[in-house]
Simulated scan of single mutants.
Amino acid sequence: MADSAPVIRAHDVGIEFYRSRKRNLSIRELIFKRRTTHPTETFWGLRHVSFDVGRGEAVGLVGANGGGKSTLLKMIAGVLLPDEGSVRVSQGVAPLIELTGGFLGDLSARENIFLTAGLHGLTREQVEERFDEIVDFAGPQVRDGLDMPFRHFSSGMQVRLGFSVITTLDEPIVLVDEVLAVGDRAFREKCYTRMEGMLADGRTLFLVSHSEPDLRRFCTRGLYLRSGQLVSDDSIDSVLKQYNTDND
């Protein structure tokens, strides 16, 4: 059951992107600020998006690819800053976005565990206490590759380790972006069980997924983003019905 006090507040949020990547500027151009010829056409990845989320809510983000779902998660995580409006988050966030959870490819899996957990406030002693739990959840393949550079892991192994670390943290808000689509059925069921446990403990969940069964299983509320606009904020069943109607 969600607490009435908001833990996430988005007010009139907008963020603007360039349609084409800027070319790299030379040091001379950077120093003398010479006029450049790179394209300057922009688009709004999100515009006029507002909502509040209470403690303990489970919210599913719904929409087509390119609709702004991952961008919104990155803004809640603090990875991106809005050009308009504001996003205020009053509790700590554990983000698992873009499969890897922010792990560094050149570091070993072992080093990434200590680094990521440390950045979220765990002491080395606390990480050591949880280390076996993290690795056991991630599975024997990950344990066998603990001292291998993370970039050599398969995408499935990266997700296993990322999910295991992020969901072992004590952060009260958890952001999950599409990662449950990767991995075998047995591992997905382990993830489902852990997520149900987190929700039972009163965590707040933001889930991006194209899987309706996953969204219905975990989320009671839905936000429907279309072309960067928030077009529906309702029960997950109502939001999925509108999304499906729009895309028939």
Score class of each variant (00 low, 15 high):
E16I: 14
R143G: 11
V174G: 10
L207A: 09
R151Q: 15
L25R: 12
L180W: 03
I166V: 15
G156A: 11
R9W: 13
R35F: 05
V93P: 05
G45D: 03
R185A: 15
L199H: 07
I15N: 10
V127C: 01
G101R: 07
R203M: 06
D3K: 08
A109L: 02
R23Y: 13
A181G: 13
K241N: 11
K69H: 10
G66K: 06
D52W: 08
V165I: 15
Q141V: 05
G85Q: 07
Y192Q: 00
G56K: 10
I15K: 12
S238D: 14
F163A: 10
I15D: 09
K69E: 00
R130G: 00
T100G: 15
R226C: 09
P140L: 01
G78P: 01
F153K: 04
L30E: 11
E16D: 06
F218P: 06
R130W: 10
M157H: 04
P213L: 10
E196N: 11
V79N: 02
G60R: 03
L180S: 10
L46M: 11
V182F: 14
G54I: 14
I31E: 08
F150A: 02
R226M: 06
G68K: 13
V142Q: 06
W44I: 01
P140F: 02
R160W: 03
L240Y: 06
V7T: 07
K190F: 03
T116S: 14
D144G: 00
P39L: 07
H152W: 12
E129N: 10
L122K: 13
V93S: 09
R28Y: 01
A117D: 03
W44E: 00
S86I: 06
I76D: 09
P39H: 06
F150R: 10
L122V: 00
K69A: 02
N244I: 01
G54N: 12
N112D: 05
G45L: 05
R217T: 01
V208L: 03
Y192A: 02
R9H: 13
E178Q: 12
L104D: 12
M195K: 05
R19Y: 07
L61V: 11
T167I: 02
V93L: 03
C219T: 14
G45T: 05
D201T: 09
L30G: 09
D147C: 07
R28E: 02
V179Q: 07
H48A: 15
D12G: 09
G145T: 05
D237A: 14
V79Q: 08
F137K: 09
D144F: 01
M1A: 11
L205C: 12
A109D: 04
G54C: 12
V89F: 08
L99N: 11
H11Y: 14
C191W: 03
R28C: 00
K33V: 01
S154F: 08
L99I: 15
I166F: 00
G197D: 07
P82R: 12
Q229P: 00
L207M: 13
T123E: 02
K74E: 05
R88L: 14
N24C: 01
L146R: 06
F114Q: 02
L122E: 00
M195I: 15
E133M: 14
D147I: 05
F218K: 07
